[in-house]
Simulated assay, not measured.
Amino acid sequence: MELRQLTYFEAVARLGGFTRAAEQLHVAQSAVSAQVRALESTLGVELFTRTTRRVALTEAGELFLIRCRRALDELDGARHDLADLAAVLTGRVTLGATAVVGGFDLPGALSRFHARYPGVALSLRSGLIAALLAELDAGTSDLVVGPAHADLPSRFSAHRIAREHVVLAVPPAHRLAHGTAPLPLTELSEESFVCLPAGSGLRSILDEAAQQAGFEPRVPFETHTAASIRELVASGLGVALLARTAAEAPGPAISIRQLRPAPLHPEIAVIHHRDHRLSAAARTCRQQLIDHATGA
């Protein structure tokens, strides 16, 4: 039994005749007839009843057609899988990531992906979430790992992979540097803050938390990275709300305090643009990131 015989048989059954099947398959009608006869000989049954006017499936043919189509579907699926694998093995993925990724082990995930698919050209870009989402819009990045804020536009799809928490960072010699009890947010009303610029996710978190506590935060020092916020706090220039990941990262000494109530931080997600079709390599990378987050 040959694949060609199954293909010819299915075409005759679907189109209701040898002539139509031959036209669609771009072969001679005699070739289609010969292959179907050979298939019937192999199976030991007639698959069609033939008259001068019509061709119809026999009962055996109807039963065999179900199995035939299942086999052809499986072969077609295998072809697509192999084509996708070839595309993954030789593909390219550009990934953007913020400095804040919660408990997600991004280096470990990328190392695992690279070990499995060493032929993929993998690029990593870092930045604030707004800039990285702009790269998704422009099509210059495939995926972003970062906070999925509540106002994330619907054109982006986000799969949550990790949680993040907001803490207070203060200079080691600050009056609030010591203590284990969570600090009320109202304790910070007279403090100077170090933060990202207006319009950033962290600035929105600070503004909302301060509003709920009944004050407007003074932000005399603005900077563009979580690492530089930490450096300015360590130098005694102010206090800051920071993601725990950033506050506990290696760097200048600061003190970390819990807050009451604790401001909410968006969950960390793998984000892609709904309107941009991901390549096979990018789809595989996305799934690997999700699997790494769940321990799969």
Rank of each mutant, 00 (worst) to 15 (best):
L176V: 03
L176H: 03
L176S: 04
A177P: 00
A177E: 00
H178W: 01
H178R: 10
G179S: 00
T180L: 13
A181C: 00
P182L: 12
P182N: 11
P182C: 07
P182G: 08
L183D: 04
P184A: 14
P184K: 10
E187F: 11
E187C: 14
E187S: 15
L188Y: 10
L188W: 12
L188P: 12
L188D: 12
S189C: 09
S189R: 14
E190C: 05
E190W: 02
E190N: 08
S192E: 15
S192Y: 14
F193L: 05
V194T: 13
V194W: 09
C195H: 07
C195E: 13
C195Y: 06
L196I: 04
P197H: 07
A198F: 12
A198D: 15
G199E: 13
G199W: 05
S200T: 14
S200P: 04
L202I: 06
L202E: 13
R203Q: 13
S204K: 05
S204R: 13
S204Y: 02
I205Q: 00
I205R: 06
L206P: 03
L206I: 08
D207M: 10
D207E: 15
D207L: 13
E208W: 10
E208C: 12
A209E: 01
A209I: 08
A209C: 03
A210L: 04
Q211P: 00
Q211W: 01
Q212F: 00
A213H: 04
A213K: 06
G214W: 07
G214V: 08
G214N: 08
F215C: 06
F215Q: 00
E216F: 05
P217K: 07
P217Q: 06
P217V: 04
R218M: 06
R218V: 03
V219N: 12
V219E: 07
P220C: 11
P220W: 09
F221K: 09
F221L: 14
E222V: 09
E222R: 01
E222W: 02
E222M: 01
E222F: 03
T223W: 02
T223L: 05
H224K: 11
H224A: 10
T225D: 01
A226V: 01
A227H: 14
A227R: 15
A227T: 15
A227I: 07
S228G: 02
S228F: 02
I229F: 01
I229Q: 15
R230Y: 03
R230Q: 14
E231Y: 01
E231A: 14
L232C: 04
L232T: 11
V233D: 02
A234V: 07
A234T: 05
S235H: 11
L237G: 02
L237K: 13
G238S: 06
G238Y: 06
G238K: 04
V239T: 04
V239A: 02
V239Q: 01
V239F: 03
A240G: 03
L241M: 09
L242A: 10
L242N: 10
L242R: 08
A243H: 12
R244I: 11
R244V: 13
T245E: 15
T245L: 06
A246Q: 13
A246Y: 09
A246M: 10
A246K: 11
A247W: 09
A247F: 12
A247I: 11
E248P: 00
A249R: 11
P250C: 13
P250H: 14
G251C: 12
P252S: 08
A253F: 02
A253I: 02
A253C: 03
S255C: 15
S255A: 15
R257I: 11
R257Y: 05
R257H: 04
